[in-house]
Design a protein around this nucleic acid. Structure first.
Lengths: 209, 209, 209, 209
DNA sequence: CATGAATGAGGGTTCATTCAT
DNA sequence: TATGAATGAACCCTCATTCAT
């Protein structure tokens, strides 16, 4: 994965360390100014090294965006995998997963906004790679929905609800200007879960949200 | 509002005509290359006049983005206003509005993607203006939900569902790579409406979707 | 031919004028610093306009080198065509042509040095084009040799002598540090012509050199 | 001479070994890309050691060019000295020397091209040094001509013919695109020698070419 | 009103050179 | 001696914007 972006430096550990610096710096800059208005010099400075050093770890500016997207996806992916337990499905588990995902999206608001506004700037090939990872995450959510729903649910319904949840999680970040005025993360989460359960025809009196 | 972008040209009709040319050209270019990678020269050329003339009708490149966002919003706004009839609320009417909105989003996919990926590039003040218009649209949807729901629904539930619908409409466009593989506009719309009605605790057997 | 280098400016006369400025500036700079050590900014400045304007008339730095090579070749080519008169061949005419060519090489020393030291920097395709033009010039000299030699001369001998003359002309420039100490243009020319006539087995007593 | 390029390494044998590596690597790279387009990193890699090590044996990139030029000249110089025998002059010997020199130029085509295209990149002082060595080689050829010519020949004629031969040898390499199509090394050499003998007014029937 | 040549600040990227290990 | 990560000056090129015609 990491190998996708070519370096002239050989020390693998150093590469990892430097890239973490780059990604962290880049996110904090992209957040405010966006990818295009952020200069490579700014990223280098914020990363704590010179422009020359930056280019020892990336080939082009776009690589930084890719590293950012990849890092974000890895975080989300890892988080979901830690939370999801397909062995012990239950409505409560479904709720836990959704809550936990929304919680993560709350923490990663900036990162998520960056990703969804700049992903188009990636060239075809890299974009496809990133979107593929996203598809995998949707599938994880879908499996949770299918396994945790006590009755039959069609593939398509599950697919669509997984997409809905996925987007609603991001929406909490990228529409914060509209939502945060009237909702707290908790009230937002609770309501979306209610709607989800109703969509799944699960009696919400039975469960503790 | 239109006056927000200052020109050196006086003839109002001409301004309107030229701006339509600009917006049309810009959208078709932004679609493929995004705002930042599209040059003013390209926009001028696609608009059918020279770079000098372009600058008679805008002050900065960003103005073009504003004009584009404004035009899109106006379209959506107008469309919603034409469809919505608050005097005669009914579940059917709610369904009609949602269907019609999704239909519009399907037609305006490119425009919507452009908007949501580039809106951040607007400077603070103009962005706020655009987002305000969006808030108004959310309110229209909310009113439809409140008035068409046969029983009581809390403000917050209505607000959230309006946001959900709004975003789901856009989602059909900006996540097309994921959704269009498995859904047609019709199946997508039908399912989302089903979920909405369930969220509203409306018995879906009673209505024709 | 000129069209090989693409411009964003439309006025053909202006293009011609600006390119002459560029070529003149470039030669005077390349002479001292060579192609690689000369910056585009320097060329722009020496040309009398800004870096932006320079790039309205060329696409890349290498285009300047091409324009220079082309301009030089055109000069030499034109000069040769004006002097050569294949209708009235004679030994005297051969001598006149060689003299005149050497004279030109003396005047264009800097240009010729520039060309022969930098031609390798041209990309394959353009280099081939330039070398082709040179081949044509060799052919012109060859024809003069063949037609002006009173007896039979083999194609290959003529070919080789044409190449020799061609290179000896350039040699006067690019080996000036060695030659100008001991020869004047006149003594250099006279001697080379003597050698040529001897090589052609023409009795040098018969002709006035 | 070798001392001209300063090192931080003391072991003289090692210096010699490393420099040979450097020169070999550099020539093979300059051949294809030229001096300016070849990076020091590439030279280090091709030499078989790190960039840091490279800089233990040179002070600046230009030193490499100097080492290359010096090495080439030494080769040619040595070769000429081995072949030339001023004690036993004869027309045959003259022919042998020229043949042998042309043969060498054929073998060293790439090196010679490199030298003559990049020599200008040397700074004044080093360039002068290199050109001085060349002058010495011309003198050697001149002496051969003077001593081997059976009748009187003026200093200037000898000087000029020496220059001609010298350049014709190089010409076989740097104009190969034009010459190698029609000549083999043998036919080229034979003809040039014929022309030389004629220029020297030596009856070519008398000698075996 | 329309044109398009001119401008130059600024961005991405390279690469010779250094120096701590 | 050997290494290779770090540095930053400097290069090529773009493009939003202006203004004389």
């Amino acid at each position: 994965m990491r190998g996708k972006v070519i370096t002239s430096v050989k020390d693998t550990q150093l590469i990892e360390k430097r890239r973490e610096q780059i990604v962290k710096a880049a996110i904090s800059l992209f957040k405010n100014k966006g990818f295009h208005k952020t200069t490579t010099r700014e990223i280098a400075k914020e990363s704590g090294f010179s422009i020359g050093t930056l280019y020892e770890y990336i080939r082009q500016k776009e690589d930084i965006l890719f590293l950012v997207c990849e890092a974000i996806h890895n975080d989300v992916d890892l988080h979901l995998k830690q939370v999801i337990d397909l062995e012990n499905p239950s409505i409560d588990h479904l709720i836990t997963v959704v809550k936990s995902y929304f919680q993560l999206m709350d923490e990663m608001q900036d990162e998520v906004i960056v990703m969804y506004q700049e992903i188009k700037s990636l060239e075809e090939k890299t974009r496809t790679y990133i979107l593929q990872k996203e598809r995998e995450m949707i599938q994880m959510l879908k499996q949770v929905i299918v396994s945790c729903t006590p009755h039959y649910i069609s593939e398509m319904d599950a697919e669509l609800l997984a997409n809905n949840i996925f987007v609603q999680g991001q929406m909490w970040g990228f529409r914060r200007w509209a939502l945060h005025q009237q909702f707290t993360l908790e009230s937002y989460t609770e309501r979306q879960i209610q709607f989800l359960l109703k969509a799944l025809s699960i009696d919400t009196d039975e469960v503790d949200v």
